[in-house]
């Protein structure tokens, strides 16, 4: 097993680029072997030995096999892989929407066995409720979660605060059908943030958007992330997006029985600027690592 020290300085990025852990066995990015102790896990978020089998009409289908992933507090992690490999499934297991057949997830010292607002999800197609306004969509979540903890005016302020954070306060009283796709996705993020999650889960949050809107939203997410310092897991198809946003990129092998193929630590200074990074050799090195994994080692299944 290869282990490389994660460099904290950026002076020697060229060396840190080699920070790729390839493996056939469970992944360990840190330099110590995790001692399984359910009450004091070393990691903020810990997926260990997660496998899942779906019951289909053609018999059981093993989508994930022995997925291991450890994430520290405040880290921004991307999961990348070919379509259908099981990225959403991983996210849904962390969210508690699916139950792993084997293994389990521990978040902040507690085992996950049901969905909850501490693991807020931004869904792939925004999933705003079309009969509620932008404000009411966020309100539904805030009301459910802070029933006894916040007064009415406090809730209002909190909803407005979160909408401001994603720059959507100008369209608070519009319906989802009246705003653009990018704006809907912003509201979806605001709704998730309003839950004060310990982990923010995003399933291809910008997948359906055009390149310009996407870039704009990525900048927003980086800005919010620097402010709130959330722990984030984001699924993406986009290599540039993964490198730009993440501290850690998790590359998944093709399914069935998909698992974590490689983990790449991205050690670039923040705040990151997409224009400046375009000519940064380290950035390009990271990109090519991910591309190599996706298009050489894990070629698209069946074209």
């Amino acid at each position: 097993m290869t282990k490389t020290q994660v460099g904290k300085s950026t002076d020697n990025q060229e060396i840190d680029v080699m920070n790729v852990v390839s493996m056939t066995k469970p992944v360990l990015v840190d330099d110590d072997v995790a001692i399984p102790d359910e009450h004091h896990p070393r990691h903020f978020l810990d997926l260990s030995g997660v496998s899942i089998e779906f019951q289909t009409n053609k018999g059981p289908f093993k989508a994930l096999d022995n997925v291991n992933l450890k994430i520290n507090k405040g880290e921004f992690v991307s999961i990348i892989g070919h379509s259908g490999c099981g990225k959403s499934t991983v996210l849904n297991i962390v969210a508690g929407l699916y139950k792993a057949t084997e293994g389990g997830v521990i978040v902040n010292g507690k085992e996950v066995n049901e969905p909850g607002p501490d693991r807020a999800v931004v869904f792939q197609n925004h999933s705003l409720l079309p009969w509620l306004t932008v404000y009411q969509n966020v309100e539904l979540a805030v009301k459910a979660i802070f029933k006894k903890k916040k007064t009415k005016p406090e809730m209002k302020e909190w909803i407005e605060h979160n909408l401001k954070l994603v720059h959507m306060d100008h369209a608070m009283h519009k319906y989802p059908a009246e705003i653009s796709g990018g704006m809907k996705q912003r509201v979806g993020i605001a709704r998730a943030l309003s839950m004060e999650p310990t982990v923010l889960l995003m399933d291809e949050p910008f997948g359906a958007l055009d390149a310009l809107t996407r870039a704009h939203l990525q900048d927003s997410v980086m800005e919010i992330q620097s402010e709130l310092n959330n722990t984030v897991i984001m699924i993406t198809h986009d290599v540039d997006e993964a490198v730009l946003l993440s501290d850690k990129i998790v590359m998944m092998t093709n399914g069935p029985s998909a698992t974590v193929g490689e983990i790449l630590n991205v050690d670039l200074d923040r705040p990151r600027d997409r224009l400046a990074l375009a000519n940064n050799p380290a950035y390009n090195e990271y990109r090519s690592k991910v591309l190599t994994f996706l298009y050489e080692r894990q070629r698209r299944p069946r074209g």
Binding site: P115, R119, V121, N125, S127, L129, A141, A144, I145
Partner: peptide, 25 residues
């Protein structure tokens, strides 16, 4: 299904789930 998952994530009581999500939808 996503709408129902929204309700599950914010842990809506099932009655609220029916009135705020299922019926309007």
């Amino acid at each position: 299904k996503d709408w129902i998952n929204v309700g599950r994530v914010i842990r809506l009581h099932w009655i609220t789930q029916v009135f705020k999500i299922a019926i309007p939808a």
